[in-house]
């Protein structure tokens, strides 16, 4: 078991005893659990999301920096951690705010072990998926970076399903020139088909095909 890497779950709660019990529970379920006694401590540690997946269980109500504040900072920093909030009695309003802020889910204390596991598992899956998507995006971006700006424009129009002639008229260049660009693009990306071009463009930027 030690040989296969397990998801790493980070927990932030100012109630030390509760924190300890939660780590105990998560470890018992086969996760690797890391505790932080405050939002500041978590930020100071700046842990990276494990490639095998993981998530952040975050107490919503804490002295000094609250859970919501930490979430805001992580979102603005582009942190890949899926966040599951832990709320106490009567924190529904804050929970709603947390969900609007992009939280994956929230758990109301005290929670059932199964509910925790289901949520954590979903978060881990989400983190894995997120990481996969990020890898693909980075790959697509690397590929696109090989194209010149002119080639990128041509590739975008081709991906939208335009013919060479239509691209030439749209860009006010000759058919021949379009043909040359298309050959270069095919060389650099490995395919000149509209569908393949569209997939790469969307992976690199989900809004890449929108009207500019």
């Amino acid at each position: 078991m030690n040989t296969t890497p397990v998801p790493v779950i980070h927990v932030v709660d100012d109630d030390v005893v509760f924190l300890r019990s939660l780590l105990f529970l998560l470890e018992g379920c086969g996760f690797e659990a890391v505790g932080h006694e405050s939002a500041e401590a978590f930020l100071g540690a700046t842990p990276a999301l494990a490639p095998q997946g993981g998530c952040l269980l975050l107490d919503i109500r804490m002295p000094r920096m609250s859970g919501l504040e930490l979430q805001r900072r992580m979102v603005s920093a582009g942190s890949p951690f899926p966040i599951v909030f832990m709320t106490g009695h009567g924190d529904i309003e804050q929970a709603v705010q947390a969900m609007k802020g992009g939280a994956l889910d929230f758990l109301q204390k005290p929670f059932k072990e199964q509910a925790l596991l289901d949520t954590v598992n979903r978060a881990v899956e989400a983190s894995v998926e997120r990481q996969r998507r990020r890898v693909r995006q980075e790959e697509a971006q690397t590929i696109l970076e090989r194209l010149s700006p002119r080639e990128r424009k041509v590739a975008r129009l081709l991906a939208l399903g335009l013919s060479n002639k239509e691209v030439a008229r749209d860009l006010d260049i000759s058919d021949n020139t379009v043909h040359v660009h298309r050959q270069r693009i095919t060389e650099k990306i490995g395919s000149g088909h509209a569908a393949d071009l569209a997939r790469v463009l969307l992976r690199a930027d989900p809004a890449g095909l929108d009207a500019s």
Binding site: V17, F18, G28, C29, K109
Partner: peptide, 25 residues
């Protein structure tokens, strides 16, 4: 009671966590 409820939740949640995990282990 609003805060009290919250505060009481903490020990209860802690105990629940431990018992659940102990059972599993």
């Amino acid at each position: 009671s609003a805060t009290l409820g919250h505060e009481l939740n903490q020990p209860l949640a802690t105990i629940a966590n431990y018992t659940a995990s102990l059972q599993r282990r």
